[in-house]
Simulated assay, not measured.
Amino acid sequence: MALGGNPVFNGKNFRSATRGNETAGFGTMTYGGTAVANQQQLEHMYNQPSAGPAETGRMTFDDVIVKTLLCLGFVLVGAAIPAFLVPGLALPLMVVGALGGFVLGLVNSFKREPSPALILAYAGLEGLFLGGLTMFLESMYPGIAVQAVLGTLVVFGVTLALFKSGKVRATPRAMKFFMIALISYAAFSLLNLGLMVFGVNDDPWGLRGADFLGTGIPFGVVIGILAIGLAAFSLIIDFTSISEGVRQGAPQRYSWTAAFGLTVTLVWLYVEILRLLAILRGDD
């Protein structure tokens, strides 16, 4: 890669600097042992192992993994509060977590530089929401929490394997369809929420509980499968962004951005799988 391709090197005249060093080198030859000492120092420098991304302050896959696990740890700690510590406050904590997580999600998404404190706060609030929601549905459908966790892990593992194999990529055409589907899904979700809030539809799942074209299958099952597919493709986008960031030498602090993106997608994926399982269990 040309030096000018990296913004760190822009505006620097390396040719003149090299000539200056060559001139200085010839100058030291007049001082007897100085040239030999300089040569030994250069040989020592050249024999040292090359500095890796961690030594140069660049983002690595290990950075992203560690910070993602830290975020998920905060999610689990937040979920444990309404699930085990104060189950009587599960509902209000779920509401606080949902609203607070939504606000901090927007704040972190639009910040120019990542803030570890805000990202971890987001993870904790999402944990409150997930803990309350999970325990509420677990009381109605025992075992659904374990099923949702296993389902999330399976989708994540399969998606990662497909990405590493090169069989699935976030191509421009795929991104276009993804955005169309995502906007359509968001519009449907807002419409469904509005109908439920204003009492137009009294089904616990709103339009999701309606029969799909007379097949006896709840509409929520079809929508849920679509949403899980969108969340899985969002993981592909996250993996692609992380790979590009590492390959292009992004600053190490942006590993927090990558961890935030993965946390958002995994929370979304878990909620969709949990809701799909609840609809299927409720239709039995």
Rank of each mutant, 00 (worst) to 15 (best):
M1C: 10
A2C: 10
G4Y: 06
G4T: 08
G5R: 14
K12P: 09
F14Y: 15
N21F: 04
G25Y: 12
T28W: 05
G32W: 05
A35T: 01
A35I: 01
Q48H: 13
A51R: 15
A54P: 07
M59Y: 10
M59C: 11
D63K: 06
V64Q: 02
L70E: 09
L70S: 10
L72T: 11
F74Y: 05
V75N: 10
G78K: 12
A80M: 02
P82Y: 04
F84Y: 13
L85C: 02
V86R: 13
L89V: 06
A90T: 14
P92A: 00
P92Q: 11
L93F: 06
V95H: 09
V96P: 03
G97I: 03
A98H: 08
G100S: 00
G101C: 02
V103R: 14
L104R: 13
G105T: 10
V107R: 15
F110Y: 15
K111W: 03
R112K: 13
E113G: 11
A117I: 03
E126L: 08
F129V: 00
L130T: 04
G131T: 02
L133T: 12
L133C: 03
F136H: 10
F136M: 06
E138C: 14
S139W: 06
G143A: 02
A148F: 07
L150P: 07
L150A: 14
L150F: 02
L153T: 05
L153W: 03
V154F: 02
V155Q: 01
V158L: 14
L160M: 12
A161N: 03
G166V: 01
R169V: 02
A174K: 11
K176T: 02
F178L: 13
I180G: 13
A181D: 07
A181N: 01
S184H: 10
Y185I: 03
A186I: 07
A187E: 08
F188Y: 14
N192F: 00
L193A: 03
G194M: 00
V197R: 03
V200W: 04
P204S: 03
G206N: 05
F212M: 01
L213C: 12
G216L: 07
P218C: 04
V221C: 05
V222C: 11
G224W: 00
I225K: 14
I225L: 15
I228V: 12
I228N: 14
L230S: 07
A232R: 15
F233D: 06
S234K: 08
L235K: 11
I236V: 15
I236C: 13
S241M: 15
S241V: 13
E244P: 05
G245Q: 05
G249L: 01
G261V: 04
V264I: 09
T265R: 15
E272Q: 11
I273P: 12
I273H: 03
R275F: 08
L276G: 10
R281W: 02
G282N: 08
G282R: 10
